[in-house]
Simulated scan of single mutants.
Amino acid sequence: MSQGSDEVREAIAGEKRLMDPDVRTSRSLAGQLLDPEFVEVGASGRRWTYDDMLAALPELDGAVEGGPRYEPTEITGVLLAPGLVHLTYETVVDGRRARRSSLWRRQDANTPWRMYYHQATPVPADSM
């Protein structure tokens, strides 16, 4: 399954919610979308854990209403296995491009989809 599956659509919706300033500034809302075992390797190369991200998210890009916001493009996804979706896309925030990859997982049918892993790779300005 890919693009059109309910699982992929739900993961994409969660990914977009994490870019919303209201979610980024709310530890409670962001915590509902991040898996307790969440890990990120950011565009800076920094490794983030669940607790690190929840603490820093309100101060990171995209958290201020009226400020720079993430502009995602070409989000695609594939269901890798039951309960595991892989998304890829690009973002631009404040003129900086990054290629992004996320794994979303759902433990069972009674739990929500949550971001389990995220990687951001900066795109050089002269790259297509």
Rank of each mutant, 00 (worst) to 15 (best):
S127F: 10
L34P: 07
P36L: 11
Y89C: 01
G95F: 00
P36Y: 09
V92I: 11
R99E: 07
S127E: 15
G67L: 14
M1C: 13
P58H: 06
G83V: 10
Y89L: 05
R24V: 07
E65V: 14
S127I: 05
E71I: 05
S101T: 01
R105C: 09
T73L: 00
R97H: 04
L54Q: 02
D35C: 14
V41W: 07
L103E: 01
S101W: 00
G31K: 09
D6K: 09
N110W: 04
D20N: 15
V64M: 08
P82N: 10
L103I: 13
Q119P: 00
D108F: 06
E65A: 11
D94M: 06
T25E: 10
L54S: 02
Q3F: 10
M1E: 15
A13Y: 07
R99T: 09
T49P: 08
G45I: 03
R96W: 02
R17V: 01
G66Q: 12
P72N: 08
R9M: 13
G14T: 02
K16R: 15
V64C: 06
P72K: 08
R97I: 01
A43K: 02
L18M: 15
S44Y: 03
T111R: 11
S5P: 09
R17E: 14
V85L: 07
Q32A: 15
V85Y: 01
V8Y: 09
E90N: 12
A63I: 03
S28T: 14
L79C: 08
T91C: 00
T76S: 12
L103H: 05
G66F: 11
T25Y: 06
P72M: 11
E40V: 03
N110Q: 06
P58F: 06
S5W: 06
S5Q: 12
G83I: 15
A56F: 12
L29D: 15
V85T: 03
R106E: 04
M128H: 11
R17S: 05
N110V: 05
